[in-house]
Write a protein that binds this DNA or RNA. Structure first.
Lengths: 160, 160
DNA sequence: CACTCAATGCAACATTGTAGCATTTGAGGG
DNA sequence: CCCTCAAATGCTACAATGTTGCATTGAGTG
């Protein structure tokens, strides 16, 4: 249930480690991790939470020293999402690095309206409930989107 | 757990009845139902499922005999959603008339990738689970988005 | 080295959603 | 009945997000 909180950016070294872990995971799965894809992943992880594709484009362009087109950003994101190391937040048109890559099951995403941070959790019971509802409807689920917005713990008790 | 299925459009008379019911509900709540808002609601109900804002704009423009701007459509949709008689499908950038207006609690939305139909259901147990998860995180939930995409019963067993 | 296929570059475009401000409409008070 | 005021709408332009098509590059393979 790892949290994303820290105000400001993460420390470069910890990001580096996370990038390497995610890259290794992708390669284990036969994914072809290119410099651009790694740059996009690094930018995603460097952001302290969800980030829009065009903001990401700016950061990646700065990082690699040349302009990257939106199409390239979206393609890299497609790859990272397919590999399970990134996720799209539908209700925000934004993207976020997955907090626990390697887990295929769908996460429940809590997004704070105040600070923009996000938390991923998993809940097997809830997934079983959804599966049961689907069965009752005769519906076969491909993809799940579960996004809750509101105020995170920090933003609810700012002073303490 | 009402279904939306019928291929093609609904019968005009039943739509008329649904529009009137939704309009009455809005008025009970103190909502100001204008001709434009009613026209948008009618167009939403006439569609056999989720519909994009710009498609809606075309239909409403045709219906009222003059061009309606996107801004007006979005404003009408905001009203209808606030009144609980319409919903936005985040994962599709589309809108749908609510199947059981009057219920404030969040619905779980099943959207068929094949035929585009959608079904709303409610699940109290699931809501309690989400509330429990939120409590554990110290998170205060404002808004819920639960959207499942896949294949509906009809599209899974086309011949039968 | 040549071939091939995935990945990227690049440009133009499509779709979705908003901002700002003028104008109209409609409910309620005089 | 008319006035007034706020809400709703019209309207224009624009912002943000996402995609298509095709040329080019580059890494791995025979």
């Amino acid at each position: 249930m790892a949290r994303v909180k820290d105000p400001g950016e993460k420390s470069p070294s910890s990001i580096q480690a996370e990038v390497q872990a995610a890259v290794a995971l992708c390669r284990q799965r036969g994914g072809h991790v290119t410099p651009l894809r790694e740059a996009v992943l690094t930018a995603l992880l460097s952001a302290r939470g969800p980030i829009g594709a065009y903001d990401l484009k700016e950061r990646v362009s700065d990082a690699v020293g040349r302009p990257i087109s939106p199409a390239s950003i979206y393609r890299a994101l497609d790859f990272l999402i397919a590999q399970g190391v990134a996720a799209r937040i539908e209700s925000r048109n934004a993207f976020v690095a997955s907090e626990h890559p390697g887990h295929d099951h769908t996460c429940i995403l809590f997004v704070c309206d105040a600070c923009g941070s996000s938390s991923e959790i998993e809940n097997e019971t809830l997934e079983r409930l959804l599966a049961a509802d689907a069965r009752e409807l005769g519906f076969s689920i491909d993809h799940r989107v579960i996004e809750l917005s509101g105020a995170c713990a920090e933003c609810r008790t700012p002073a303490k």
